[in-house]
């Protein structure tokens, strides 16, 4: 009987220890990316002194602009446990239509700010439709968004029928080269969107609902969350930021082409995963997203500086995402998630 008592106490202790270890793991998850960012920065600076030269810092700020905008939007989607693969297509559609609505080489339109805002709002609407299809028809988000990406990419090319519009407005140039306090205007826009994302995630009931859904959808439902509405909103947000990224890209390239979206999805998701936002939902946040975007941008920039071939860079990207996911995913589940 006395032995039984000891055994029982041993199990209780083991259980407590298990929870303690989980908590420790969770802490590690929060601090790991920050440690990684700092050590990579030091490493890169030591390896090549050009890395932290003023010119390269401006470069870094330029390079992080679009990934940061896209990552801010898709953070919401990932936190609910869904994924959005449509952002490349949506981005291309936004960029193409904006180029056609402001002063350009293809037609006589000159709608100015309205020509920018309407396509971005349209993107948000497309995202809402995506969300509705996902929630009402109960189709997995990766399928819906994959299809939506395909639809929007097709529509993007259709808007200009072969020859993309080149924009002729003067402010586009000012916007893309100008800077304030040494930070490019476009990066300021990205930072602004990121800040808005932080407010939305951390200061509203909506933000709490996003976490609750990602953590345990059934429990969230039980506590009165309108799952479908919140999910629709996160897809709308993500599509909206994709639209803004399309605008930035259009301003930078001076041409509204569907292809501007290509190869933009992967950096955004890689950044999030490296930063510690879980692909299975509920874990991570805007801080993780920001750190992830910085790590990703620094890495890409560094590989360019030391002259690594672009195709190797792509391969490196793939390896990084697998390592990052492998480090963060819980392997206790018995089945491999599909």
């Amino acid at each position: 009987m006395e032995r039984d008592h000891e055994k029982r106490a041993a199990i209780a202790d083991q259980f407590k220890e298990k929870i303690r270890r989980e908590t420790r793991g969770e802490r590690l998850r929060v601090y790991m990316p920050i440690i990684l960012l700092l050590s990579l920065s030091v490493l890169f600076a030591v390896y090549d002194s050009r890395f932290f030269s003023p010119a390269n810092i401006t470069n870094l700020l330029y390079q992080m602009t679009i990934p940061l905008i896209l990552a801010t939007g898709i953070t919401f989607v990932l936190l609910t446990g869904c994924i959005d693969l449509s952002l490349e297509g949506v981005m291309g559609l936004a960029g193409s239509s904006i180029a056609l609505l402001i002063l350009n080489t293809k037609n006589s339109n000159d709608f100015g700010a309205i020509g920018v805002l309407v396509p971005i709002a349209g993107c948000a609407l497309i995202g809402a439709v995506t969300g509705l299809i996902h929630t009402k028809l109960r189709i997995a988000s990766f399928i819906v968004t994959f299809a939506m990406g395909s639809i929007t990419a097709g529509l993007a090319v259709l808007t200009y029928r072969g020859v993309p519009a080149v924009i002729k407005v003067g402010w586009a140039n000012d916007l893309s080269v100008g800077s304030f306090w040494g930070v490019p205007y476009l990066t300021w826009i990205a930072l602004g969107i990121f800040a808005a994302g932080c407010v939305l995630l951390y200061c509203t009931a909506f933000g709490c609902a996003v976490y609750a859904i990602g953590d345990n959808e059934l429990a969230a439902k039980a506590s009165g969350t309108h799952i479908d509405a919140v999910k629709t909103a996160v897809f709308a947000i993500c599509a909206c930021t994709s639209g803004i990224a399309g605008f930035i890209s259009c301003v930078r390239l001076k041409i509204g082409q569907a292809a501007m979206g290509s190869d933009q999805l992967f950096p955004a998701i890689t950044a999030l995963v490296i930063g510690g936002v879980s692909l299975s939902g509920g874990k991570g946040g805007m801080l993780q997203t920001f750190v992830g975007v910085l790590i990703y941008t620094e890495l890409q920039n560094f590989l360019t500086i030391i002259g690594v071939d672009a195709y190797y860079k792509k391969a490196v990207q793939g390896v990084i995402i697998i390592i990052a996911v492998a480090m963060t995913v819980s392997r206790s589940r018995k089945t491999i998630s599909k």
Binding site: Y211, N216, A222
Partner: peptide, 11 residues
Amino acid sequence: QSLTANLTVAQ
């Protein structure tokens, strides 16, 4: 338990 791990106690 039905609490959301990544929200605060109050939330």
